[in-house]
């Protein structure tokens, strides 16, 4: 049951998307996510979906695998749809008992559904094509400027990659401890909330003890392999932008342009953003033309 989570699972394949620099993928995913929140009509979403389909196609990841990760968030999707359908106000289509379904509600629900769907597929595309270590390397590199403010960027990246490595192990361990305590008669399915909370102790205590033991072991193993912080550390897969990345950045720039175009055409951007953009352009264009 706990094994179904696809997030953070790398799918091994040899594709242009896999070969991209992690930084390109992180920035690209971020841009894509922002674009989804700026859109609010179907035409825009069709455009975003076509773009994503194109990228998924390039990644050589079987669609079946992509959708497997959806199962764990199915509840969230269903909840969003129901919430929007029944709790929006507007032109009433059907009304029965306390429920009213409105035209706006359905529209909102469909948009939210598509938005969430694209969001999940988009972000799992990044985790499926990038190993967690590449991902943390990418984040470390993107956040490097923060080092000036004494933010421990390397340490945070290392912590993240260790967490990613140990989450599945601890999940399995939880499963095992739960079974062992059930076998000793622990009542984990009692309706009474107090009994249920109390019955967590026999699971949480061993889990914490084990997590601490693992942490101690791991620290020792890292030290034994000459780990001494980020200083003087090199990388086997040194990040470098390739020709593929340049192409990707150009496509990304095109996508941003298209997003802005669509957004302005359909007036989907919040007003303050449009004003900001206008001000920015009014400043930029004269400056550039002056050169």
């Amino acid at each position: 049951m706990l094994k179904d989570i696809t997030l953070g699972q790398y799918y091994r394949a040899d594709s242009v998307i896999h070969r991209l620099d992690p930084r390109t993928k992180i920035v690209g995913t971020l841009v894509y996510m922002i674009s989804l929140f700026l859109f609010n009509n179907l035409i825009c979403y069709v455009f975003a979906a076509v773009f994503l389909t194109f990228v998924v196609g390039l990644s050589k990841i079987p669609p079946k695998f992509m959708f497997r990760g959806m199962r764990s968030v199915l509840f969230l999707l269903v909840f969003t749809v129901i919430y929007n359908i029944f709790l929006s106000t507007g032109t009433v289509i059907v009304k029965f008992w306390v429920f009213t379904i409105t035209y706006e509600g359905i529209q909102q629900a469909v948009c939210m559904l598509i938005r969430l769907f694209l969001l999940i597929v988009g972000s799992s595309l990044m985790t499926l094509t990038t190993t967690p270590n590449q991902l943390t390397d990418g984040l470390e590199s993107l956040f490097k400027p923060l080092k000036i403010f004494k933010v421990p960027v390397h340490e945070m990246a290392m912590m993240m990659s260790i967490a990613l490595r140990f989450i599945p192990i601890l999940m399995e361990e939880t499963d095992r401890i739960m079974k062992a305590q059930i076998a000793r008669g622990a009542d984990l399915e009692n309706r009474n909330i107090f009994i249920r909370v109390k019955s967590l102790i026999p699971i949480l205590v061993p889990l914490f003890v084990s997590a601490f033991r693992r942490a101690g072991d791991l620290a020792l193993a890292m030290e034994a392999r000459c780990y001494h912080g980020g200083e003087g550390r090199t990388r086997m897969k040194a990040m470098s932008f390739s020709a593929g990345d340049i192409v990707a950045w150009v496509i990304l720039a095109g996508y941003i342009f298209a997003v802005v175009f669509l957004g302005v055409t359909f007036k989907t951007f919040p007003e303050f953003l449009v004003l900001e953009m206008k001000a920015g352009l009014e400043y930029l264009i004269p400056t550039l033309s002056a050169r």
């Binding site: 790398y10 190993t131 270590n133 990659s161 490595r165 000459c226 780990y227 001494h228 086997m236």
Partner: peptide, 16 residues
């Protein structure tokens, strides 16, 4: 094992 991929783990020592 520190790395999430076999070869990345093997590289950990020499990287340090």
């Amino acid at each position: 094992i520190i790395g999430t991929i076999v070869e990345e783990d093997v590289a950990f020592g020499p990287e340090n």
